[in-house]
Simulated scan of single mutants.
Amino acid sequence: MDDSASPPTTRDLRAHLDAGAFDAIRKALERYRRGASDERQAALRALTAVAEDDPERLGPLVDALEPFLVDDDRAVRLLSAKLLVTLADVAPTDVLAVVPALAERLADESEFYYVRARSAEALGYVAREAPEAVATPDVVADLCVGLAFDEPAVREKLATALECIALGDPSRLRHQTETLAAHLDDDAELVRYHLSTAATVVACVHPEAVCSHRDALVERLGDGSPYVRGRAAEALGVLTRADGVSAPAPPALETVRDDEAAFAATRARFALGDADAGEAVGTVAGVRETTDDAVADITAPDAACPNCGVDLPDPGPPTCPNCGVPRGPPGPP
């Protein structure tokens, strides 16, 4: 039997990476493509583990990952898309070579929805740094249309991508503000947050494009999320201060100014003209600096086991699934 045609072990794959033997890795990936699905999945998991520690090591290999995005096995397609998300978040320009392939996965309505979600996320991260390579009319249209029809997990990633496009080049969304406003009441907090953030960024550069949808922002001042309330207040403050538009501060901002959440209260003070709101509030740079922390807080686990520290959902099981210790009395309904 000729072992040279068989895929290498994942240990060999890591050894090639450690040695910088990219030609050997490319040949190995070609053999994986001809091998069994579980072998391809194992290889992609091994590469993802490397990418999580040092994503730039995989930069020279990104184009070799493209065939895995159209693999017959959807698990392989999903793992490859997740790997590209990891790379794009840290080294977005390294992923430029596979932007067309990711856009095809996003546009394919028959594709597994998690693959579409991860493809949108990867495209968004690239768009933050290279919007001209990603934010074509077709891609923007696919992202916007999906907000009305896709699963919640997909909508969150579509909204993420739209926020990223806005941060990369607000002008790319100046004609999509009606869509952003129409979905500011989405059931998912992350969707509302990302879209209100995108609207805020667009307002910083094109206030006239957002001003006609001011009512949707005013409504978000009563949102259950302090981060959505804060972004809505920030966008309204940008409109209030902008030249050439008529957008007086709504009375509801007075309530948000006394918000228990500093994120919301600071931005309401900005909208009401207070001088202590901070120079970065109401700017594209300021939004860019604060959005990752906001998302991290929104997605943080609800609770941790008092015994072993494992993250627990709320509501959740009465005992910790990891150590079996009771989690304590439930909170108020």
Rank of each mutant, 00 (worst) to 15 (best):
D2H: 03
S4E: 10
S4I: 00
S4W: 00
S4V: 00
P7D: 00
P8F: 00
T10W: 01
T10L: 02
R11G: 06
D12Q: 10
D12V: 02
L13N: 00
A15N: 03
A19K: 09
A19G: 07
G20V: 00
A21M: 00
A24F: 00
R26T: 08
E30Y: 05
E30L: 13
Y32V: 08
R33H: 14
S37G: 15
D38C: 04
E39R: 15
R40H: 08
V50T: 12
E52V: 08
D53S: 11
D54A: 15
P55D: 13
E56G: 08
L61T: 05
V62F: 08
L65V: 06
P67V: 05
F68Y: 14
L69M: 07
D71T: 02
D73V: 15
V76M: 13
R77L: 13
A81R: 07
L84A: 05
T86Y: 11
D89L: 14
V90W: 02
V90C: 09
V90Y: 07
D94G: 11
D94I: 10
V98Y: 09
A101S: 13
A103N: 01
E104T: 11
L106W: 03
L106S: 02
A107N: 01
A107D: 13
S110Y: 08
F112G: 02
Y113D: 10
Y113A: 02
A120I: 03
L123M: 08
V126C: 11
V126A: 09
E129H: 12
E129C: 03
A130P: 05
V134Y: 09
A135I: 09
D138R: 11
D142M: 02
C144W: 04
V145M: 06
L147H: 05
A148N: 09
A148I: 01
D150R: 12
P152D: 14
V154D: 04
R155T: 05
K157M: 14
A159F: 13
I165F: 08
L167M: 10
G168C: 10
G168F: 12
S171W: 06
H175Q: 06
T177L: 09
E178M: 01
T179R: 10
D185C: 00
D187K: 07
V191D: 05
Y193P: 02
Y193Q: 11
L195K: 03
T197D: 07
T197M: 11
A198V: 11
T200P: 03
H206I: 00
A209I: 02
A209L: 04
C211Q: 14
S212Q: 12
R220F: 14
G224S: 09
G230S: 07
G230E: 06
E234M: 07
L236M: 08
L236W: 06
R241A: 15
A242F: 00
D243P: 00
D243K: 02
D243Q: 11
G244P: 01
P248Y: 04
A249G: 04
A249V: 06
E254I: 09
T255H: 10
T255L: 14
D259K: 00
A268P: 08
A271Q: 09
L272T: 04
G273Y: 11
D276P: 02
A277P: 14
V281Y: 05
V281H: 04
V281N: 07
G282A: 13
G282W: 12
V287T: 15
R288L: 09
R288D: 14
R288P: 06
V295M: 07
D297Y: 08
I298C: 11
D302Y: 13
D311F: 13
L312S: 13
P313G: 05
P321C: 12
C323K: 12
V325G: 01
G328W: 10
P332A: 13
P333D: 11
